[in-house]
Write a protein that binds this DNA or RNA. Structure first.
Lengths: 339, 339
DNA sequence: AAGTCTGATTGCAGCGCTGCAAAAGACTAT
DNA sequence: ATAGTCTTTTGCAGCGCTGCAATCAGACTT
């Protein structure tokens, strides 16, 4: 039993297939009477357009892909949760990909390859790819990059002002009277742009307060996750002169750090104050609740989707722009204590 | 500048388009010399097949959709992280959808509607739909259901033995000497099957130990999240006779409950032991670490994908089966204390 | 040497839709 | 009544690929 096609509907309604197509797509001018006839026929036959055929005819898939390093990282899943409805609203479906931060995988994705045409555009949150890697890519693919890379002019970049945000976080620690402030999460190598910006904010806040930076208090980690946070915190505590506050480059890192502190019988924030970054839901429910920098994820999602739609819709190349979403400092128990 | 097509390759290689297609798809028998010729031509022209055209010709999209209620719920994002690679391995791309548990949205998804043909099959984790709702659906859509519904014979169901798992969790609480055990998460209404199975396990464990169940210790919640867990725990503590242990229907609920306990200055597990369900990553890093029931997510993902592939590949209807993945009890600090 | 068989290759048709531009109708102005 | 204008509808062709069945070439039988 064949599915009903445009042609079937056309026959029943007594019009041409093209007219049915016009009705279905809301295209062009169609008289009300014709429209009604067609709609009645559609209803009667239970016609549903064949997306595959439409895709081939239009050369578009109506899908975008969102690529994140890790799906089970709360920040990304929360972001995704914001992107999907925004895309759907624009009439697009969302494919999801995770790369595990693998540079090869990431590179293969932006060069399209076998999955060409499967999606009309990409929202990409790179991890393993450096700024430079991003530039050698299939220029035909409309691309919006999230995170901390900067645009090379061929794609858009949406992010928050990481330096300002990080600086605000550290200034907050200074304001509550901390004097030995550590940073956990630095990544001083090409793919560590995100981390490096936060380190710059860390320095900026010190400079603004007229404080020197103790370089030995900047601890590197491979990833921004709990284990790394816990390990780095342990290393800090094993020193002769442990810090009295830590700026963690993600809430997960913060959560790991807090874990270590509590395990050693130290109090947060009395002994060591902690501030994170990302404002993941977890941070609002742990104990203590985690002070953090909250990027406006909804704004990021909406902006990214809007720009991507614009790129997809435009015949000629759209110059890439830098777009900043808002962020704000949210002090919670891990710096202010129980209220 | 047109993209190169099969025809271009055929011309350059001096063979028919059909032969090129055969080479590309690894179909049929092709002599080594022909294959080489074709492959050389492909490389020379940088030919990449047009997925859209292939989809139309074959009537398949090479995509499956995974539908979950909430993407930012760790259990689902962890599950998704397991499903995506499994599907990719089988040559399928994964679309992701979240329904917010909205019954209307869920219903529209399983009835296919406008997105017909966009995916060849669906892995669906229902929340708002009752058993009955599931049965009125587009039978043509290959479907594998996750979670706690049971198959009506037209789709496969993959889950763990919830009753046994819940019972094991509660038995664990009994074994460590607890006498007043509460349950947080019951949902005594049609769409609450998941919760009800856990409640049955709760009762079963009591029965097995020859203990009566105090019905007033079974607390309902609208969702399985932190807030609900925290609220329910507070209600329990406000009673004259609070429990000394709680079986929480998810790790998030457990996390919320622990939050309340600690906030009130109670100790976990000394004053109240807590066990959760799902084994999300968070539970391994919080303080205390959360004892839990760990469903084998990798097995669930693999089984679901395998079954779906089988359904997609089969011309005639495949009878639906019930498949059980393994689970195990993982005692951690929230029941055993610090070691 | 003719007949048979096996495996490699090919041609045709069409998947169901839309872009394009032309045709048909409706209406206005002369 | 006729030409001109604008709106609505239509026909054609083709997006690039694969299913199917037929064809062809070579090897093997008798």
């Amino acid at each position: 039993m064949r599915e009903t096609t445009l042609r079937d509907v056309a026959e029943l309604a007594g019009v041409s297939p093209r007219t049915v197509s016009n009705v279905v797509n809301g295209y062009a001018r169609v008289t009300d009477t014709t429209r009604e006839k067609v709609e009645r026929a559609i209803a009667q036959l239970g016609y549903r357009p064949n997306v595959l055929a439409r895709n081939l005819a239009t050369g578009r898939s109506g899908q975008i892909v969102v690529v994140v390093p890790y799906l089970d990282t709360p920040y990304f899943s929360e972001l995704l949760q914001a992107i999907i409805p925004a895309a759907r609203e624009a009439g697009y479906n969302v494919l999801v990909d995770q790369t595990d931060g693998d540079p090869a995988h990431e590179a293969s994705l932006i060069s399209q390859g076998a999955r060409r045409l499967l999606f009309d555009g990409m929202i990409f949150s790179p991890l393993g790819l450096s700024q430079q890697d991003l530039s050698v890519r299939d220029q035909a693919l409309p691309l919006v990059v999230l995170g901390e890379r900067t645009s090379d002019g061929t794609f858009d970049h949406v992010g928050i002002d990481d330096i300002a945000a990080s600086s605000a976080a550290v200034s907050h620690l200074i304001e509550i009277g901390r004097t030995r402030i550590a940073a956990i999460g630095d990544q001083p190598y090409p793919t560590g742009e995100a981390a490096q910006l936060r380190t710059r904010g860390f320095r900026a806040a010190h400079a603004a307060a007229g404080r020197p930076v103790d370089e030995s208090l900047i601890i590197g980690t491979a990833r921004f996750n709990r284990v790394d946070g816990a390990t780095a915190m342990a290393a800090l505590l094993d020193r002769a002169d442990p810090p009295d506050a830590v700026f963690c480059y993600s809430d997960l890192v913060a959560s790991g750090a807090i874990h270590t502190l509590l395990q050693r019988g130290l109090r947060v924030p009395e002994d060591v104050a902690i501030i994170g970054y990302d404002d993941i839901e977890d941070g609002r429910y742990g104990r203590p609740t985690i002070s953090t920098i909250s990027p406006d994820k909804k704004a990021i999602a909406r902006t990214a989707v809007d720009r991507l739609m614009l790129r997809i819709g435009s015949p000629e190349p759209v110059p890439g722009v830098e777009l900043r979403a808002a962020h704000r400092l949210i002090p919670r128990e891990s710096t202010l204590g129980r209220s």
